[in-house]
Design a binder for these strands. Structure first.
Lengths: 108, 108
DNA sequence: TACAATATGTCCCATAATAGACATATTGTA
DNA sequence: TACAATATGTCTATTATGGGACATATTGTA
């Protein structure tokens, strides 16, 4: 069927909205950078560079959309991220705009 | 209410998916560049540079997502754009990915 | 003892994107 | 007759982005 452009559009959305995709993943379950990388690569079939991901995670924490706790149990320390109320607000706003796009309304 | 991030997210979507927003507008009614600029600025409350818009419209036509007919009636000639079956396919794929995002599914 | 995998971080350079100017043409209005 | 609005187009200098290297640390395995 008409899935010619699927890969291209998914790629564009993940590339430009990677922070939002991270919020979506972390909302489902707390995750750390390395796991987010692996999960995003598996889910979206695109390559995520860690050199871009870790600075992004740090900036999301600075913006108050994520919080982190360092876990020392396994191997090298992991920074496990959780979504904050602000992060949920950001996601909810995103979802409400998507709904309007689907209803063919222009965001106001 | 929680609309703190609304402007920012709309801006990001329109900036990164301007071609898709153009397809959405043109699907509703045939439009020309100047009108698309004015409509996008009114609907999304962002500034659209014509120096970016016209090359984008030409590339959408080259890709077969839009077709144009030149109208000579009024003032300077207008290139009135219509969406093509390919353009509709592109939009439909976009909408199906948005639906998956809303259902919290990962695109496959 | 290497090497692969896990885990997080910075930095640079080449390429890509963007803002804004330059360019032209028509119509209506002050 | 200017000027604003309509209408479409290109070009360049600056800015932003991205790929990939450099860096370090731990655990498990061949």
């Amino acid at each position: 069927m008409g899935e010619t452009y699927r890969k291209e559009i998914v790629r564009r959305i993940v590339k430009n909205m990677l922070d939002i995709q991270i919020l979506r993943m972390v909302q489902t379950q707390p995750l750390w950078g390395y796991k987010i990388k692996k999960k995003a690569e598996a889910d979206f079939h695109i390559k995520i560079r860690h050199g871009a991901l870790y600075p992004l995670l740090n900036s999301l924490e600075r913006k108050g959309l994520l919080t982190s706790e360092t876990e020392h149990q396994t191997g090298r320390a992991r920074k496990v991220y959780n979504i904050t109320p602000r992060g949920r607000e950001y996601l909810d706003t995103y979802y409400s705009i998507l709904k309007e796009q689907l209803e063919s309304k222009q965001p106001t």
